[in-house]
């Protein structure tokens, strides 16, 4: 907790400074609030209008969490399959990169045509944005496995399966977690975008309704909610990473290992 405070105060200070500048400039130039609301107005809306957006939050959390788990499952599965079957990797890897070049905005309406307005097309959108960083990070981790360790395992006659589960998988975990963290922040974005397609609830819906009625302060509340959710997800995955890798980098003083 104290380390969070130690590291967190600088960005927090910058953020507060920016908000003060914004508040001051907007007041000075008398910007109309439908164009750019004041931070204090936004904060006020966030407090007084909380009943308006509260139900939307839960819906977005459910959607993004579902999409996130679908996405990382697909991502890990793809990475492991491609890594363990090299011919598959040659065939499929370029397609995976191409899949990231389809703009979600174009794809989304198509998915609605195919799957209707239910959860399905939305989860597919989130999966599509989440699986990619996971697959790439995990594949990189597998490929970077230490050569000496790999050689040792081969020399003592380890099977491909043993080499994978005892060496390559644990070796790639830190890299995999980088992918999981990126995917976590993408999942909120993905959920909001997919809610724009047509949903009855969600931060994305709250946002479209607010902007079409020129309630600009509410649009900013929605942006703040998206940021907070992203940070929260990032924090949860970071905590999971700490737990999963708790045994690593624990030992060794900063000035090098102990001597006999």
């Amino acid at each position: 907790m104290s380390s969070l405070l130690k590291k967190g105060w600088r960005p927090a200070a910058v953020l507060i400074l920016l908000l003060i500048l914004w508040e001051g400039a907007a007041r000075l130039f008398d910007v109309p609030s439908w164009l750019l609301p004041l931070p204090t107005q936004i904060a006020e809306e966030a407090v007084t209008g909380s009943a308006l957006y509260a139900p939307h939050i839960l819906s977005t959390v459910m959607l993004s969490a579902t999409g996130y788990f679908a996405g990382i499952s697909v991502g890990v599965f793809t990475a492991v399959s491609l890594f363990r079957v090299p011919s598959l990797q040659q065939a499929v890897y370029p397609l995976i990169i191409l899949s990231q070049n389809i703009p979600v905005i174009v794809l989304a309406p198509l998915l609605v045509i195919w799957f209707g307005f239910g959860m399905m097309p939305k989860v597919i959108v989130i999966t599509l944005v989440c699986f990619f960083p996971v697959t790439i990070a995990a594949l990189d981790g597998f490929r970077q496995t230490d050569r000496d360790m790999l050689h040792y395992m081969k020399m003592i006659g380890a099977s491909r399966r043993q080499i994978f589960w005892k060496l390559q998988w644990p070796y790639a975990l830190p890299s995999l977690f980088s992918g999981l963290k990126i995917a976590a922040t993408y999942s909120v974005m993905g959920a909001v975008i997919s809610e724009w397609l047509g949903a009855s609830k969600g931060i994305g819906v709250y946002m479209t309704m607010s902007s079409s009625s020129f309630k600009t302060d509410r649009v900013f509340v929605a942006i703040a909610l998206i940021m907070i959710l992203s940070l929260l997800y990032f924090g949860i995955i970071t905590a999971a990473e700490r737990f999963a890798l708790r045994s690593r980098h624990k030992g060794g003083s900063p000035d090098g290992p102990a001597h006999t």
Partner: peptide, 28 residues
């Protein structure tokens, strides 16, 4: 799989303790 081996670099797995590293050769 017929021989035991010790390489030039120790090639210990950093996420395993000393005991778990020693166990590895038998595990495999």
């Amino acid at each position: 799989g017929h021989i035991s081996y010790m390489p030039q670099s120790p090639a210990l797995f950093p996420w395993r303790t000393v005991l778990q590293n020693v166990r590895l050769s038998a595990e495999v």
